[in-house]
Amino acid sequence: MTGLTGVTGMTGLRERARGALLGLAVGDALGAPAENMKPSEIRRRWGRITGYVAEHPSGTDDTEYAIFSGLLLARHGSALTVAHVETAWHEWIADLDEGPFRGAGFSERGTLENLRRGLAAPISAQHRHAWSDGLAMRAAPFGVFAAGQPAEAARLVAIDGSVSHDGEGIYGGQAVAAGVAAAMVGAAVDSVVAAALSVIPMDCWTSRSLRRAVAVAHRGERAVRSAVVIGGYPWTDLAPEAVGLAFGAYAAASGEFPGAVLTAVNMGRDADTTAAVAGALAGASCGVSAIPLPWAAAIAPARGSCLPSMRGHHVLDIAELLVSDRGVS
């Protein structure tokens, strides 16, 4: 699958771009308090989460890294190279003091340590968490940029990911980027899923997980979670698991925004990332107007808590940058 034909006009493209990236940030902020929790723990604390439960909701490293990749892509477009990505990691992260999150997740920390030791891509991605969902969480901008071109979105996100990820970590990012690219032109949920699967090996763990999740999505979040989650495994940032849960939530809600995001949140595990990905998919599918206004209004410019260099950038500004070269008015 190299491209998709959709009915989206140019104005619709901008609305979908805004929906995808604002949807990512909203999902991130909604899911952050439930990160690393079990559904039973979520229920005991909040009942069912139906909106923000934090007093001051904000995005985490998921949003800040998505802004990072969006800025990188806006700067280089389809000419993006591994050297560009590596330079940006040094310029915007590795060679600066980090925020309180200290580089964020395990894959980012491992990458930064390797880069600071003088290692270059792809050796910089040789750490113990190269299979994490750290690329998937920042993949949506590539789908926005390559709207209607899942293969191109997958090609570009793999270039980005080569500095920090390998194997299943790359596949997770490619599935998300391709899915968003399909959703950006109004593809149906089944076609969005097919686009995601078309760019990764059929026999890889991410593909199997995604297919299992979507197959049982009509039975709801408990079935999706049971089909995907590796019981007893302590880490929640596995790309095959997070991507499966996110697409399962998106399919369970038939692509509808609040349902997709809240399904992901209430399944727990890496809830900020799964809800961010589900939000990007549903936001691209439905457009920014589908995001409840109180949820959207809470998203402010990035605080730079993880990446100080991203402070002050708003995801909606990134959306504008990614569609501006298409002549969208």
Score class of each variant (00 low, 15 high):
Gly173Val: 08
His127Pro: 12
Met137Cys: 09
Ala213Thr: 03
Pro141Ala: 02
Arg109Lys: 15
Leu135Tyr: 03
Ser58Leu: 05
Pro301Glu: 01
Arg311Ile: 10
Ala154Ser: 15
Asp317Glu: 13
Ala215His: 06
Ile67Val: 13
Thr81Ala: 10
Ile170Cys: 04
Gly312Asn: 01
Ile159His: 06
Ser329His: 10
His165Pro: 02
Ile159Trp: 05
Leu21Met: 13
Phe142Cys: 11
Arg109Gln: 14
Gly279Arg: 01
Ala183Tyr: 00
Ala20Gly: 00
Gly134Phe: 01
Val163Phe: 06
Met184Phe: 08
Trp205Arg: 14
Glu15Phe: 10
Ala153Ser: 13
Ala32Glu: 06
Ala249Arg: 05
Ala215Ile: 07
Asp95Leu: 14
Glu113Cys: 06
Gly287Asp: 05
Gly103Asp: 14
Ile42Pro: 02
Arg303Tyr: 00
Asp272His: 03
Leu24Pro: 01
Trp92Gln: 13
Asp28Pro: 12
Cys286Val: 00
Ser107Ile: 08
Ser329Ala: 11
Asn266Tyr: 12
Arg211Asp: 10
Val189Glu: 14
Leu24Asn: 12
Arg44Met: 14
Ile230Ser: 04
Val192Gln: 08
Ala151Lys: 13
Ala296Gln: 11
Trp235Ala: 14
Thr60Met: 00
Ala239Gln: 01
Ala139Ile: 06
Ala213Val: 12
Ile159Cys: 01
Ala34Asp: 03
Pro39Gln: 06
Ala32Thr: 07
Val185Met: 10
Trp46Thr: 12
Leu316Pro: 01
Pro100Leu: 15
Tyr171Asp: 11
His129Ile: 07
Ala297Glu: 14
Arg14Thr: 07
Ser289Met: 09
Leu293Cys: 07
Ala278His: 05
Ala79Ile: 04
Gly287Ser: 12
Arg75Val: 02
Glu320Phe: 08
Ala252Tyr: 02
His314Val: 00
Gly232Thr: 13
Gly279His: 02
Thr2Trp: 14
Ala136Asn: 09
His313Met: 11
Tyr250Phe: 15
Arg18Ser: 06
Thr11Asn: 10
Pro201Met: 11
Ala217Cys: 04
Val185Glu: 03
Ala282Ser: 15
Arg45Met: 14
Arg208His: 15
Arg311Met: 01
Leu71Ser: 05
Val243Arg: 01
Gly186Met: 02
Arg155Gln: 10
Arg212Ile: 04
Thr273Ser: 14
Ala302Gly: 04
Glu15Gly: 03
Gly283Arg: 08
Arg212Met: 11
Ala94Lys: 10
Gly12His: 04
His129Thr: 11
Glu41Tyr: 11
